[in-house]
């Protein structure tokens, strides 16, 4: 029972972590809670269903399942990143020097727009991810785990490791860190801030697309409204680990996934969605900078 909950928790937690990274990356650089990020994840999930549908329609899936899935991943990530990129250019960039609440409200506007855009174009009913995947169950001791769960956990971990390497090793990654530290300084050093911000949105949206796609495969269903709650939870995960901190988002996601699945398993599953909020509130009130965040001195 316990181990089983851990596995479920890790699966969901990996997904939260991938979305949380998008929040943390953007917050690190713009100090903006990108409220629309949950919607980007939802769009990723829909894109997955749309593209696998297209590939099935043209017969690619029947020809090679692997190739078809691979292309679905690639296409969803690309298009979803394009969405993230465009949202930033249209809704946030003009507000870069506005008071802090304005971009937040703009982000809420984007979130409402994207949700209703998907609802109007794709319908309000659940969309089904086609049953193309063979389900294999791995059993050890009393614990069962599907290959898909294993896949999700592994992909999440690989992407996190990849992002970590990217941020630490590549030139762009270093520029991102410099920008997060001090924007003025970074631009004096010749870093193109606009480009870095775009890159940040592209990467965040790409990770969210993968998360969305994997969730679509895992639950088999998506709905235009999944972005809001997942977004809030991922944001909680980011805050849990200290918003702005990349390892923090990863750990926060996994921890939140575990809290939720253990809470649902041992306490009450009706309030499953409330756990994230309670954790969020408690953390922000006790340590507003998050678990791994730095502390500030003094009052005010």
């Amino acid at each position: 029972m316990f181990l089983q909950q851990i596995i479920n928790g890790l699966t969901v937690g990996g997904v939260y972590a991938l979305i949380a990274l998008g929040y943390t990356l953007v917050y690190g650089i713009l100090e903006l809670i990108n409220f629309a990020h949950g919607e980007i994840y939802m769009i990723g999930a829909y894109l997955g269903i749309i593209f696998i549908g297209i590939f099935t329609a043209v017969g690619l899936t029947q020809y090679s399942l692997f190739l078809s899935l691979f292309l679905t991943f690639i296409m969803s990530v690309l298009v979803c990143s394009a969405y993230g990129f465009t949202v930033e250019k249209l809704a946030y960039k003009p507000l870069r020097n506005a008071p802090r609440l304005n971009p937040l409200i703009s982000a809420i506007g984007v979130s409402i727009f994207l949700q209703n855009y998907v609802m109007l174009t794709q319908g309000a009913t659940d969309k089904v991810f086609p049953h193309v995947l063979p389900v294999t169950i791995i059993e050890f001791y009393n614990v069962t785990m599907t290959t898909l769960q294993l896949f999700i956990i592994i992909v999440s971990l690989l992407l996190m490791a990849g992002l970590h390497l990217f941020i630490m090793k590549t030139k762009t990654g270093k520029a991102m860190r410099a920008t997060a530290q001090d924007k003025v300084m970074a631009s004096l050093l010749g870093i193109n801030i606009d480009r870095i911000i775009s890159v940040t949105f592209v990467i965040g949206s790409g990770l969210a697309a993968v998360a969305g796609l994997m969730v679509a495969m895992y639950y088999g269903l998506v709905n235009y409204s999944i972005g809001y709650i997942a977004g809030i939870k991922a944001f909680t995960a980011a805050v849990l680990g200290g918003i702005g901190s990349i390892p923090g988002a990863m750990i926060g996601g996994l921890v939140l996934g575990l809290i939720e699945s253990l809470g649902a398993g041992y306490l009450s599953s009706e309030y499953k969605d409330a756990y994230a909020f309670i954790v969020l509130i408690v953390i922000l009130l006790i340590k507003p900078t998050g678990l791994l965040g730095k502390t500030e001195g003094g009052r005010s």
């Binding site: 971009p103 703009s106 506007g109 409402i112 727009f113 949700q115 209703n116 109007l120």
Partner: peptide
């Protein structure tokens, strides 16, 4: 039908 869609766009435009 487009009420919420317009609300979203409206918020963004308003802020800008």
């Amino acid at each position: 039908l487009y009420r919420m869609l317009a609300l979203g766009v409206g918020l963004v435009l308003m802020m800008i």
